[in-house]
């Protein structure tokens, strides 16, 4: 026990390579494989494309990491993505300013986050059922608002933002990197970050230290939902339309990305960068399979297999490092 375990160290420079989780190994393998299979894979346009797709996934996977670190889960993230997009679109159509529309989406998202958080943190109900229930609520509201149809025809300002660049970098990638930086600071350089890890690891210790642990626990769900709600704005910019069911399944990919990256569902064990690795692995897999013309639905099956492979690699590694 006294020897540090090999996996899931913080990303220190020296330890980095010895600590690559299963997702990292699979990512490198896939990059090599897809490049050999079709050199078009490493073309600049395609790599930018991978970056764009990964950015959107990251915006769900990063807050999901915080939630999973508290030994929780948010199955409603995908549905919220759809709902929040619909709210922004409808508000814009109703003549609201972009800012007001986003503020509205933000308010509703945080309210749902608070609902999840209260039920999970204060009533100690299991996260997966609570968020499954709120997922139904959100999906339902989005469907009722749109009658199930996509909403389009609102101001192109959002699409313009999505397509804009900061220097040579596409805006979604910039936003994802900024979000990563912000959450990294939050998790590793603020009190709240310590408390997030403590909730999953030893909530009693946090209480003993005089911290209102339930409030922190609640805050994690509120923050997570707020980020997801704002990410929806980028998502509707991609196609210049909001679709009520667009986010369905995104929660699965986000959870898969987090778990792939080596974050565990227990004891607050994990790291934020794992979500980046995981999101990249999933996006590369999807993109590579696309280039090989594998049907998108089969790609989901492949994600599942990837996940199990990564878990097996991590397990074997742990086994041999003991």
């Amino acid at each position: 026990m006294t020897a540090p375990t090999q996996s899931q160290q913080r990303p220190g420079a020296g330890q980095f390579f010895s600590a690559i989780p299963g997702a990292g190994i699979l990512l490198i393998l896939m990059l090599a494989l897809f490049t050999i299979a079709n050199p078009r894979f490493v073309s600049q346009t395609n790599l930018v494309n991978v970056g764009l797709q990964a950015s959107l996934l990251l915006m769900i996977a990063l807050p999901m990491t915080l939630i999973i670190l508290t030994e929780g889960l948010d199955l409603s993230a995908g549905a919220l993505l759809g709902l929040s997009g619909v709210i922004v679109a409808e508000a814009l159509l109703a003549g609201w300013s972009v800012f007001a529309a986003c503020a509205m989406a933000f308010a509703i998202s945080t309210a749902f986050g608070a609902l999840n958080g209260v039920l999970i943190a204060y009533l100690t109900l299991p996260a997966f059922v609570v968020t499954l229930g709120t997922m139904g609520l959100m999906q339902g509201i989005a469907l009722v608002m749109t009658n199930g149809d996509p909403v389009g025809g609102f101001t192109p300002a959002i699409e313009t933002f999505y397509r804009s660049q900061l220097w040579i970098f596409p805006m979604p990638i910039v936003v994802a990197v900024a979000l990563y930086a912000a959450l990294w600071l939050l998790l590793y350089r603020t009190r709240l970050g310590n408390y997030v890890i403590a909730i999953g690891g030893n909530k009693d210790a946090l209480r003993l230290a005089g911290i209102r642990a339930n409030l922190v626990h609640l805050a994690v769900y509120v923050l997570g939902s707020a980020i997801v709600g704002l990410s929806a704005v980028l998502l509707i910019g991609r196609t210049n339309s909001a679709h009520p069911t667009v986010g369905i399944g995104m929660e699965f990919e986000a959870i898969a990305a987090v778990v792939l990256g080596g974050t565990s569902f227990e004891k607050g064990q994990g790291w934020l960068f794992g979500a980046v690795l995981g999101a990249l692995a999933i996006t590369v897999l999807r993109n590579g399979l696309n280039i090989l013309s594998v049907d998108s639905s089969l790609q989901v099956v492949c994600i599942g297999i990837l996940l199990i492979l990564a878990l097996l690699i991590d397990r074997a590694r742990k086994h041999y490092s003991r």
Binding site: F252, I255, Q299, V300, V301, I303, G304, L307, L311
Partner: peptide
């Protein structure tokens, strides 16, 4: 099997299966 052998929490294992089976059906 996933729950017994991989020691995955039931909600995670069956949640993964949810998407895998659905993807397989679409395919």
């Amino acid at each position: 099997l996933m729950i017994n052998r991989l020691r995955l929490p039931p909600f995670l294992a069956t949640f993964g299966m949810l998407w895998v089976a659905q993807g397989a059906a679409y395919w």
